[in-house]
Structures are given as structure tokens and as C-alpha cells.
């Protein structure tokens, strides 16, 4: 019935049990090789090409630091980098503040396990849809004639349509928070779900206040989930360029978008250098986040 999925395993393994491990090692080399060719090498290639000499149609294999020098001494690139970092930080903090309570509600308030899973999946489902489509869908919400502006106008909250709702840094950050929210909710939901209700009940019986339960039990126990979620959202929003392009119009920039522009003009070494700087800053941010997570465990 199912012998087609691992055909090469049959002749080798059926003879002797001892060869089982050898077969697994052989099978294991396939994903290993795949990840090497399509993940590790491409990342290294970016690093290497960032030191190559740019030419009109590509690059020459001659070592140079000029790509980095040019980028780091360029004011626009620097402010792009800062803007990217700021957007990523804001998105991370906002998704945490918004997402924690969603995870809290799902894991600790919804009593029925079936309802809990169903609600979680309903919240999770949009994540699987096209990222582009979800970004596009923001346009009729946030535009000058969009739903939000019409609502604000008809409620008399504003007298003119608000322009900053679309094609601005603000719009980009709101959209990113929406697009990446699930990456924050899921890990927090899973870590809150592992908490024994008896622990909370005991704390309550001992007279602990609601906020001290939150502060001294829930937050520390949810910390691994929070750190994982924060790393996810931070990394994703650092590398974002589609949201920035579609929602930001021309009014917002990101390093990812600069990379794409460099590639459009065949400036590969510059693109690679920008990507390397982006990765360096991202990794620094992730290390800081993980360190913050580890300190919490020691305390």
C-alpha cells in the first residue's frame, strides 16, 4: 500500500536488522544534502559575493570592501537600516502586547479543549493564505476612501480622510503586526497550554492576586514561548519587503526592499552586502533576545 515512499529502503533493510542504522544514515544524507545545496551554500554565497567587485552586468571575483564602505557611508542606506530596525522592534512589541492576551484567552480562559483547538485553528488559518493577498487586502481597509476612513468620517471622529493610514510607516507597521501576529500567538499559546491548572488554582487558593499570578507564574512560564515568538516576528519583519512595498508605497523603506532594488539594477555585490549587513543586525537582535530569555531562566 505504501511501499512507494521509501523504495530504496526495502532491499537493504529487509535482510538484516543491523543494516537498519546504515539505511537511516543513507536516508538522512538526502535532507542533509538538500539543506546544504539550497540553504547553507546560498547563505554563504551571499556573504562571499558581498566582497566581490561589481561590474556592469554582475560581479568579478576580486576582493573588495567597497560595497560595505559605500553602503555604510551612505546616509539613505543608514536611515533605511534604522527604519527597518525600528519597524521590526515596534512590530515585535506590538504583536507581543496584542498576542499575549489572545494566547492567554485561548489557553487559560476557554474551558473546553475542543473549542480551544477550534478557535486556535480559526485564528491560525489566515497565516496559510497568500501573504501578498493579505497585504493587498489592506488597501481597501486603509486607503483614503477605505473602510477605516469612511468609518471615522461618518462617526464624526475626523473631518477629513486620514492620509497616514496607507502608504506610510504607520500603515506598514499595522499591516506587519497583522501579518505576523500568529507567529507570536502560537508559541505563547503552546507554552501557556502546558501549565497545570492545579498550579494556578493553588496560587489562587493561597490568596495570590490576579496580577501577581500573571507576573510571578504565567509570564515566567510563558517566557520560552514569548522569546520564540519575539525571535520569529523580529526576524520576519527585519527581512520584509513585500509589505513595505505594497502598503508603504514609496513612503516607507526597508533593507529588504533595497536588496530587491539592487538586484533589479543587476548590482549583485551591493545587494549581497546589504543582505549581509541585514543578517548581522538581525542576528545581533536575536542574540540579545535569547540572552534576555536565558537570564529569565537563571533568576
Amino acid at each position: 500500500m505504501s511501499s512507494y515512499s521509501l523504495p530504496e529502503a526495502v532491499p537493504a533493510a529487509s535482510s538484516r536488522r543491523l543494516s537498519g542504522n546504515a539505511v537511516w544514515a543513507l536516508l538522512l544524507s538526502l535532507p542533509l544534502l538538500w539543506l546544504l545545496v539550497f540553504l547553507i551554500v546560498p547563505v554563504l554565497v551571499v556573504l562571499i559575493v558581498s566582497f566581490f567587485q561589481p561590474t556592469l552586468s554582475g560581479f568579478e571575483r576580486a576582493f573588495t570592501l567597497d560595497n560595505y564602505r559605500a553602503l555604510l557611508s551612505s546616509g539613505p542606506f543608514f536611515s533605511t537600516l534604522l527604519n527597518t530596525l525600528l519597524s521590526a522592534l515596534i512590530t515585535t512589541v506590538v504583536t507581543f502586547l496584542v498576542g499575549f492576551w489572545v494566547a492567554y484567552y485561548l489557553a487559560l480562559v476557554v474551558p473546553n479543549l475542543r473549542t480551544r483547538f477550534a478557535l486556535f485553528i480559526i485564528a491560525l488559518a489566515p497565516f496559510f493564505t497568500s501573504f501578498l493577498i493579505r497585504a493587498v487586502a489592506w488597501i481597501p481597509m486603509m486607503g483614503r476612501e477605505g473602510v477605516l476612513n469612511s468609518a471615522l468620517l461618518s462617526l464624526g471622529i475626523t473631518s477629513q480622510p486620514l492620509d497616514f493610514l496607507l502608504f506610510s510607516n504607520f500603515a506598514v507597521r499595522v499591516a506587519m503586526a497583522q501579518l505576523y501576529l500568529l507567529f507570536m500567538i502560537s508559541p505563547i499559546f503552546f507554552s501557556l497550554s502546558t501549565i497545570e491548572p492545579a498550579v494556578l488554582e493553588a496560587a489562587r487558593d493561597m490568596g495570590a492576586r490576579w496580577w501577581s499570578i500573571l507576573w510571578e507564574i504565567l509570564l515566567p512560564l510563558a517566557r520560552p514561548g514569548i522569546v520564540i515568538g519575539a525571535v520569529f516576528v523580529f526576524v520576519l519583519s527585519m527581512g520584509d519587503f513585500a509589505t513595505v512595498r505594497l502598503i508603504g508605497g514609496g513612503a516607507s523603506t526597508s533593507v529588504g526592499l533595497s536588496i530587491q532594488n539592487f538586484v533589479t539594477y543587476m548590482q549583485f555585490p551591493q545587494a549581497a552586502a546589504a543582505a549581509s549587513i541585514l543578517v548581522l543586525v538581525t542576528v545581533l537582535g536575536v542574540v540579545l533576545l535569547l540572552r534576555w530569555g536565558a537570564i529569565g531562566e537563571e533568576l
Partner: peptide, 25 residues
Amino acid sequence: LLPMVLLALMTPGILLGLGMSLWWR
């Protein structure tokens, strides 16, 4: 393999795409 799988999850898409196109080039 485990760190590699984690790296696969964390690598920004634009970086992987750029690396792949340069590597193929």
C-alpha cells in the same frame, strides 16, 4: 540537522532568494 532545520525557518526569504540566484549564476 536540527540547527539546520531551525536555520531554514529563520533565514529571511529575500536573503535565501538572493543567495540562491547568485549561487545559480
